[in-house]
């Protein structure tokens, strides 16, 4: 695995000057991923903050070949690029070793692009799909997605007089992807650069599809301070709301077990989107939230080191 020094010396393929918010989790994720291989990289991005923030014509942040097509088709777009690579390589028209990466937000991945993702994984194209999960459709103004945490206040699941935010538990996409039996699936967080970088290296070595679900703090949608983003990512992991784990060749490994598991309320209470949960009368929701986190963490620990 690359050391921090080595990573820092790699060419910067994602230029500054983009329009993503201060404190946004996406740029550090993308920058680190693009540093994780010396092969050529071609990337696509689903419609969303990353696309909008990096490609305002005539400027681009991408120092690699990059394509944006639509919201729900990052996985099928990269399928086509990868297929073209195979065909043209066979003919001798391209030679360079090249990696293919699709980036999508949680909306573009868990929801509208879910079918395209599942199809591309099943077909076995060689590509890495990266979901940056900021827990809502942020680009269009913080609407709920199936990744929005339980109880979360969004513009389409507002904490109202009667309904206290989102009523459903989030979809466990990582687990669904694992069920596709692909070679490598991981959950990661940008605060832990070495874990993320290691996972990217593994993912890009796979001859076939691989998938990473990466928590991406969003000051705008979480109602948090820009400078707190990495701390919030760490807290999500230390409370076991966002466990760092991987399924490598069918074997699950929990990559980080906090010495002292923090109460999830520690993570919730510092975010404006959960403010209403701390009002009198909503104790039940918090309790349920904690129970669910515990349950899922226990489930992971039970499977740690085992074949899925």
């Amino acid at each position: 695995m690359a050391t921090l020094k080595e990573l820092a010396q790699k060419e910067e393929l994602f230029s500054g000057g983009h329009r993503l918010c201060a404190g946004c989790g996406i740029p550090p994720i993308v920058r680190l991923i693009l540093r994780s291989t010396s092969a050529g990289i071609v990337a696509t991005t689903a419609t969303g903050c990353l696309e909008v923030g990096t490609s305002i014509y005539p400027y681009t942040s991408w120092r690699i070949p990059w394509i944006h097509s639509a919201f729900e088709n990052a996985a099928s777009t990269i399928s086509g690029v990868e297929a073209a690579y195979k065909a043209l390589k066979r003919k001798g028209n391209v030679e360079k070793e090249t990696k293919f990466i699709a980036f999508g937000g949680d909306g573009g991945t868990y929801d509208i692009g879910f079918q395209a993702l599942s199809g591309a994984l099943e077909r076995g194209h060689s590509f890495l799909y990266v979901c940056y999960d900021n827990g809502a459709y942020m680009n269009t103004g913080i609407q709920r997605s199936s990744a929005t945490p339980y109880g979360g206040n969004t513009t389409t699941s507002p904490a109202g007089e009667v309904v206290p935010g989102k009523q459903q538990w989030r979809k466990d996409l990582t687990r669904i992807v694992v069920a596709h039996n692909i070679q490598y699936v991981a959950q990661a967080s940008p605060h832990n650069w070495s874990d993320l970088s290691k996972k990217t290296e593994k993912a890009l070595k796979v001859d076939g599809p691989s998938f990473m679900n990466i928590l991406s703090p969003c000051p705008l949608g979480w109602y948090t301070k820009s400078e707190d983003s990495m701390g919030l990512a760490k807290l999500a992991v230390d409370t076991c709301y966002w466990p760092l784990y991987e399924v490598d060749n069918g074997v699950l490994k929990v990559n980080y077990k906090p010495k002292e598991k923090k109460p999830v309320a520690d993570w919730l209470k510092v975010q404006g989107r959960f403010k209403h949960l701390f009002k009198p009368g909503n104790e039940g929701i918090l309790k349920e939230f904690q129970e669910r986190v515990d349950e899922e963490w226990e489930r992971l620990l039970e499977r740690d080191g085992k074949h899925m």
Partner: peptide, 19 residues
Amino acid sequence: VESEHSAMSACVGAAAAGA
């Protein structure tokens, strides 16, 4: 592919890749 939406999306990706 798993749908025509993906068929045309894959065509777009492949054509942009010079195929």
